[in-house]
Design a protein around this nucleic acid. Structure first.
Length: 210
DNA sequence: ACATTAAGTGATT
DNA sequence: AATCACTTAATGT
């Protein structure tokens, strides 16, 4: 546990902080597609991402999801941080994109460590800043990019996240993430294929150069 | 062989 | 870009 922690966080946290984390934290693992944090849940702990990728999304009142951004190792969810501060409910959902392991810290340590450890303070502040940036980026993507650009970016991110140009996904699922219809996705993918940027087959998209 | 699910396409708004 | 309506292709039982 402590070794895993050091692996991902030693550059951020001082050793006594690492040791204290190891004392109070527990390790949790999730399979791909597990819901790690759901909307409306009151968080009682701070999760630190040890390995794997989390997909953060927003949901509308009909239950449709809109993909926001990915979280990777060394990051935490700013939403959960603010939830821990004021006991608010989560307004986003985090789903495991790959198998995930989390280091779970009881939420009352949050404030205590803020005064005690510079590294913790820095980490929290950076997380906020980082997440704000990601969030703005996500808004930009949705508001200012055309659907075809959004799709290209989506594919590019997906490839980067799972490190393979082969994406196993249906057009319908892509459409859900981008909050559009399957027909639109199919058409755009078809034209990307004609440009030689991707290769399509059932349940799979192979990205060649996007 | 049949049913189901994924993907492709023209026409309309 | 969304929706409808329909076709075609792939896959499971």
């Amino acid at each position: 546990m402590i070794t895993a922690l050091k692996n991902s966080y030693s550059y951020l946290f001082e050793t006594d902080l690492l040791e204290e984390i190891a004392k109070v934290a527990t390790l949790k693992t999730f399979e791909a597609d597990d819901i790690v944090i759901d909307i409306g849940v009151r968080l009682k702990f701070i999760p630190l991402l040890m390995s794997g990728v989390l997909k953060v999304m927003r949901e509308d009142k009909e239950g449709d999801d809109l993909f926001l951004y990915y979280l990777q190792k060394g990051e935490t969810c700013a939403m959960t941080l603010s939830c821990c501060m004021d006991e608010a409910k989560s307004k986003v959902r985090a789903v495991a994109e790959t198998p995930v392991s989390l280091c779970v810290i009881p939420k009352d340590k949050m404030g205590e460590w803020l005064g005690k450890y510079k590294g913790w303070q820095k980490f929290i502040l950076q997380s906020y800043q980082n997440k704000l940036q990601k969030f703005i980026e996500a808004v930009d993507t949705i508001a200012f990019l055309n659907m075809d650009k959004r799709l290209s970016k989506y594919l590019k991110d997906k490839v980067a996240i799972n490190g393979s140009p082969q994406i196993l996904i249906t057009h319908q699922e892509v459409a859900n993430d981008l909050y559009t219809s399957r027909v639109v996705v199919s058409r755009l993918l078809k034209s990307l294929e004609k440009e030689g940027k991707i290769k399509l087959s059932r349940n799979q998209i192979e990205v060649i150069n996007c």
